Simulated scan of single mutants.
Amino acid sequence: MSAQGDGDADTPVAAGRRKAGRRPGGPDTRQNILDAARAEFGARGYENTSMRAIARSADVNAALLHHYFGTKDQLFLAALDFPLQPRDLVAQVVGGGRDLVGERLVRFALALLENPAARERVLAVVRAAATNEQMARLMRGFMEREVVVPIAAALALPRPDLRVELAMTQMVGLIMGRYVIGVEPLASAPVDELVPLLAPTLQRYLAG
């Protein structure tokens, strides 16, 4: 009897009694999630894309997205192969008091961009955002939600969101001039020469 009962577990009738659900994880699950995330973020933008929607598109349980990537912003970064961690940037800017906030921001950005592997991934996204409205919209939504809002919330100053955005545009200008266009002498200037020149402007934006 027990042998017959064990065999029944694999019959079509028994299988039909099992609870239907999303496809479980497998060898290609992570890549399928990344492909679905790129498609959903591209179609809906960062703010309007949910983890549940990505899970439906990838035909997996939503728990697998959290298993592989953690949070929505981490999945977004993985989908773009983007090396900047907004949480690290926010912690660097708002941590340690306001006296050297401008210098900390400059040093964080330059440390990232002076790393060749990280620089190439950042520049790939910057170039795409500069020439593709869909990518520009994605990055605006992401940076506003994950960088501008948290930093602005920590600044006890008038128009903190505008101040943070001005600081971000200053950094984008640095990226374009130094690493994309290669304007001299900016392109070859040592980091230690650039920091004291840029820091006061960013300090004024972020700390008044």
Rank of each mutant, 00 (worst) to 15 (best):
S2G: 12
S2R: 11
A3P: 00
D8Y: 11
D10G: 10
V13R: 15
R18I: 00
P27Y: 03
D28I: 01
R30G: 01
R30F: 00
R30P: 00
N32W: 00
I33L: 06
L34N: 05
L34Y: 05
L34G: 04
D35V: 03
R38L: 09
E40Q: 15
F41P: 14
G42C: 09
G45H: 12
N48C: 05
S50W: 10
A53F: 00
A53Y: 00
R56M: 03
R56G: 01
S57A: 15
A63H: 04
H66R: 14
Y68S: 08
Y68E: 07
G70H: 04
G70C: 03
K72R: 14
K72A: 04
L75R: 08
F76V: 02
F76L: 07
A79L: 02
L80H: 05
D81Y: 02
D81N: 13
D81H: 07
Q85G: 04
D88L: 11
D88I: 03
L89G: 06
Q92I: 02
V93G: 10
V94Y: 04
L100Y: 07
G102N: 01
V106A: 05
F108V: 01
L110N: 06
N115I: 01
N115Q: 12
A117N: 07
R119S: 13
E120C: 02
V122G: 13
V122Q: 14
A124M: 04
V125M: 09
V126T: 10
A128W: 01
T131K: 11
A136G: 07
A136L: 06
R137D: 09
G141Q: 12
F142L: 11
M143R: 12
E146K: 14
E146L: 08
V147F: 06
V148F: 07
V149D: 15
A153I: 01
A153W: 05
L157R: 15
P160M: 10
P160Y: 11
R163A: 15
V164C: 12
V164N: 13
E165F: 03
L166H: 15
M168N: 14
M168E: 12
Q170W: 04
M176K: 15
V180L: 13
V180A: 06
V180K: 06
I181S: 02
G182A: 03
G182F: 00
L186W: 09
L186P: 02
A187E: 03
A189H: 04
A189K: 10
P190S: 11
V191K: 08
D192T: 10
L198T: 05
A199N: 08
Q203Y: 08
A207P: 07
